[in-house]
Computed example of a mutant assay.
Amino acid sequence: MTTDPTAGASTIGGDRIRFGASASRELSDSHGKTIIADAVVAKIAGIATRQINGVYDLGGGTARVVGALRDRIPGAGVDHAQGVSAEVGEKQAAIDIGIVAEYGVALHELAAGIRRNVIAAVENMTGLEVTEVDITVHDVILLDETDPGTDPDAKPRVQ
């Protein structure tokens, strides 16, 4: 494999493969068709969202309750797509994300950072064009607040 840094492409056996921001959005060719499931795009978007400082959790009330229950089951993994839904077409994707933000973070800047990271991750990994990323802030949480029901070292209010 050789890389041509000026063209944003690599060659393997003489075939040119485009990648990055200049990638071809074509997911089908004479050899076949690539179908990317909605759940795959949602998972990529969820992981990209969690990478942004200021995001405490993903999802609204119900999704977070289900996530908390799942976390208590031994061996259960993290649902990276929690709070994220995606609609995928042949060449484009639209994504909806629900978040809980940390208190003190500028929400408009947080949303812009999430959008940039999600668009870059989804477009680079799938070749789909992301047409929109809608973000709903469901809650803001103080990090120094503790919930006595989840903190094993918390003392009960009454004896």
Rank of each mutant, 00 (worst) to 15 (best):
T49K: 01
E87W: 07
I97N: 01
D71I: 05
D96H: 13
V40F: 14
A111M: 04
I73Y: 07
R64E: 00
T49W: 01
L143M: 13
Q82K: 06
Y103M: 05
D134I: 10
V122H: 07
D71S: 14
V78H: 08
G113V: 00
I135C: 01
E90N: 14
V40K: 12
G113L: 04
A101T: 00
D57W: 02
E102F: 08
H80W: 14
L107N: 04
V66P: 06
Y103K: 15
E109A: 09
G98E: 08
L107Y: 03
I97Q: 00
D57M: 02
R116A: 09
G104S: 03
A106Y: 02
I97L: 05
D96W: 10
G67R: 04
I36A: 08
I47A: 11
L128A: 06
N53E: 13
G75Y: 05
A94V: 07
A120I: 01
Q51R: 15
D79W: 08
Q92Y: 12
A93Y: 11
D134T: 13
T34S: 09
K43S: 12
T62H: 12
G77K: 12
Q82I: 08
T49V: 02
T49G: 01
G59N: 04
N117Y: 06
G61K: 15
N53P: 12
A112D: 06
A42K: 07
T126Q: 02
V122L: 04
I95N: 06
V137I: 15
I35E: 13
A101L: 03
N124D: 13
T146H: 15
A37W: 11
A94W: 00
D79L: 10
D144M: 11
I35T: 14
A112C: 06
Q92H: 14
N117C: 00
V66S: 07
S85C: 00
A81F: 05
I95L: 05
M125P: 08
K91V: 15
D38M: 06
V137D: 01
V105D: 05
G127D: 02
G77A: 08
A48C: 07
R72Q: 11
L107W: 07
G60Y: 04
D134M: 13
L58S: 08
E132Q: 12
A68G: 12
G83I: 02
V100H: 00
N117Q: 09
N53D: 15
G127W: 09
P74I: 03
H108I: 03
P74H: 07
D147M: 13
A39C: 00
V100F: 00
K43A: 10
A111N: 07
G127M: 02
A42M: 06
V84I: 11
L69F: 12
V78G: 01
N117E: 03
R115Q: 15
L128Y: 10
I35S: 13
I44R: 11
I114K: 14
G83A: 02
I47T: 10
T62Q: 13
D71G: 13
V84H: 05
V133C: 04
D57L: 05
V55L: 05
D79R: 12
P148W: 12
A45Y: 05
P148L: 14
A42L: 08
D144Q: 12
R115E: 13
A81E: 10
E109V: 11
V88P: 05
R64D: 00
I52Q: 15
Q92A: 13
G104H: 09
A101F: 00
K91N: 14
G98W: 04
I44D: 02
R70C: 03
I73L: 12
N117L: 01
D71V: 06
V133G: 02
G113K: 13
A48V: 04
A39W: 14
Q92M: 10
R50C: 09
